[in-house]
Amino acid sequence: MTSAPRTSRLLLLAGGAVLLLALVLIALTLARPSTSAPAASAAASAPAESSADVGFARDMAVHHQQAVEMSFIVRDRTSDEAVRRLAFDIINTQANQRGMLLGWLEMWGRAKSSPGAPMAWMGHTFTPGGDGALMPGMATDAQLDALRKAEGRKAEVLFLRLMTAHHKAGADMAAAAASSAGTEEIRNLADGMVRGQQSEIALMADMLKERGASAS
């Protein structure tokens, strides 16, 4: 079994590598010759601090970080190949997307975090309860501790339930960004997130059913 400190180190190393790669890719994209003056102007202008683009990038980066953390945990709490494969896919997909979001914030000259309440860009009023769940769908500290202590099928079911709730809230957030963001980059990424997470929600429902459990 992998210890919590080692998992944290892996998260930091993976996140740093993905962020560096994202910055390089974004820089190369912006450096390409523009085909029109409006396109060049759009690439050079950063979304406003209060924009859906900036708010979504910050909030989804945090949301994704926990999904990656949960996936690392369950990977080491079960030998089931289907669950480990799903965890591996989530780690790779969401770590990469998180790196892109943080990379765009860097390119826009925006801070990675905001002192304001999360999800304000959606017109929501959400106050974290101090239990570790910073946004809807996120697991609490107690739930993460329970996942770390669980093994085998119990860990699988708990992970699938927590990740289903996580994905549902994440898909709602991404749908809001896909319809309200001002940049094509965020709209396209958010739209892909909606489709990807909805697909995994359906997959996890089948996996829970195979284990004699439901999402609730």
Rank of each mutant, 00 (worst) to 15 (best):
E106L: 13
S180Q: 15
L134K: 15
M100E: 08
L144Y: 04
F159P: 00
T164H: 14
K209P: 00
Q198W: 09
A139N: 05
R75F: 03
R148Y: 06
H166T: 08
A171C: 04
A46Y: 04
G152Q: 05
M173W: 02
A181D: 06
F159K: 00
Q143K: 10
E200V: 04
E200A: 05
E185C: 04
D206H: 08
G116V: 10
A178Y: 00
S45Q: 15
S199R: 14
P38H: 13
A111P: 05
P47H: 11
P33C: 08
G192Y: 01
M204A: 05
L25F: 10
R98D: 09
A48Y: 07
L28G: 09
A67Y: 00
E210Q: 04
F126V: 12
A139G: 09
S50F: 10
L28Y: 12
G16V: 06
A174L: 04
S214T: 15
I73R: 01
G212C: 06
P33Q: 08
E200G: 03
D89P: 00
A39W: 13
R98W: 03
S50T: 15
A87P: 00
P115T: 09
P5Q: 12
A190G: 07
L11R: 06
A155R: 02
A43P: 05
V83Q: 02
L86Q: 00
A190E: 05
A117N: 10
H167S: 05
D172I: 09
I73E: 02
S214I: 09
M138Q: 04
G152A: 08
T78C: 10
